[in-house]
Design a binder for these strands. Structure first.
Lengths: 114, 114
DNA sequence: CTGAATCCAAACTGATACTG
DNA sequence: CAGTATCAGTTTGGATTCAG
């Protein structure tokens, strides 16, 4: 199944976590969740510090999980588009909740410093 | 600040993620979120496969992030209790959202197999 | 009972060079 | 343009031993 070695007690939270863990995955998702499909190089430009290797690997994993689709246009030079799936869109509420908690946490830390 | 090497674009989602990533952290949180304080050994028994080392490390990190408190009772043998903080309780909605998505995803995968 | 310390293996990420 | 391949570095987790 999944990387269930990492999910010793079949925790549902971990199942959800496995969709979005990876150094750059949340950022990739953030860009694709806007709805517009993006080409490999467009993502690369939006995430300047990512390596081609990591971008490829993360995109492949997200594709495996039905979060996005990969469409190859048979052209020279090649064109490949990545688009969020309907199913991938269901991550939206979860990610939004996390984003809000994260924003709040940044404030929490500032207060703590005082 | 935080482990911001791991958060290249100051993504708020990653800030939230950093609270709960770690092999056993979601499970630890799950147990403590019930509200009852738990001793080190009680947690160890609830999570049989965790090593003492990992339990200690995860608890320390959660403590650093104000998610839980560590209370030492000066006794012999020692007694140490871990209790979720009020702030830690604010993780609840986020974790519940993730849990629901995870549960749904398990169903999604079953359908896919057919 | 609740750890800390050490050593080791596996997983993850980065850098670089090459290709259809 | 959109990758693949290889190698090196970093991080994470596990096993074991020792200690207040």
């Amino acid at each position: 199944m999944l990387k269930d070695k990492k999910n010793p007690q079949q925790c549902q939270i971990v199942v959800a976590l496995n969709m979005i863990v990876g150094k750059w995955k949340p950022i990739i998702l953030d860009h694709l969740l806007h709805g517009e499909p993006l080409r490999f190089n467009e993502l690369k430009k939006l995430i300047p510090d990512i390596t081609q290797r990591m971008l490829t690997m993360h995109l492949r994993e997200l594709e495996e999980h039905d979060i996005l689709t990969r469409t190859v246009y048979p052209q020279v030079p090649p064109k490949v588009e990545y688009r969020i799936t309907e199913y991938g869109m269901t991550l939206q509420p979860m990610l939004k909740t996390m984003q809000q908690w994260g924003a709040n946490h940044i404030e929490h830390m500032k207060e703590k410093d005082n």
